[in-house]
């Protein structure tokens, strides 16, 4: 009995202390260290936003469009407010694209590490990806179970692209 308890206690100690969004840290300083690989306009948001997509440069150097992203990949979805004209409509550049401000509305992170997916069933899990949401200053985590579940379920439709909407597609489109 005591031996069983000891074994259980030891197992608890060597198991990861955190599971789910707690495993994903806010990537402090990402605006200067990560690479912006795409900008997605959100005209459906009021006021309009532009979604900056970032990847850490180590992962970008290793990644290709015909394989899952490498362990250690961190993707950031940063929602910025668009620059508005006097009429309240988004201003546009010569190409007709919205112009971003430096005001951030929200930051969402997806990160993968070898083995992270082991705690999920294959149907629920997104490979080894985990998700977490942050306020712009990185201090406040907005990660209720329901919010994280919505990350997992929405990304299921891109299982064939390693559960990413834009990253593997970006690599394929630039021929990497």
């Amino acid at each position: 009995m005591i031996r069983t308890l000891l074994v259980l206690a030891c197992t608890a100690l060597v198991s990861p202390a955190f599971a789910g969004p707690e495993r994903v840290d806010f990537p402090t300083g990402y605006q200067s260290t990560f690479y912006v690989y795409n900008q997605v306009e959100r005209p459906d948001r009021t006021p309009n936003q532009i979604r900056f997509m970032y990847v850490n440069r180590d992962a970008l150097a290793k990644a290709t469009g015909n394989a899952p992203a490498p362990s250690g990949t961190i993707l950031i979805m940063e929602d910025r407010y668009a620059k508005l004209g006097p009429d309240g409509q988004a201003e546009r550049d010569a190409d007709g694209r919205m112009i971003p401000t430096d005001r951030v509305a929200a930051v969402a992170v997806m990160e993968k590490r070898d083995g992270w997916g082991a705690i999920y069933t294959p149907e629920k899990g997104n490979g080894d990806w985990e998700y977490a949401g942050f306020a712009p200053d990185g201090t406040k985590r907005t990660t209720t179970d329901a919010q994280v579940a919505s990350c997992f379920s929405c990304h299921q439709s891109r299982r064939q692209r390693d559960w990413t909407f834009t990253f593997i597609k970006y690599l394929q489109d630039v021929g990497k």
């Binding site: 997605v40 005209p43 190409d95 909407f165 970006y170 489109d173």
Partner: peptide, 13 residues
């Protein structure tokens, strides 16, 4: 309606 294409990317919700 979602467009991932670089230089045209947009999400209409």
């Amino acid at each position: 309606v979602f467009i991932p294409t670089l230089g045209h990317a947009i999400d209409l919700g």
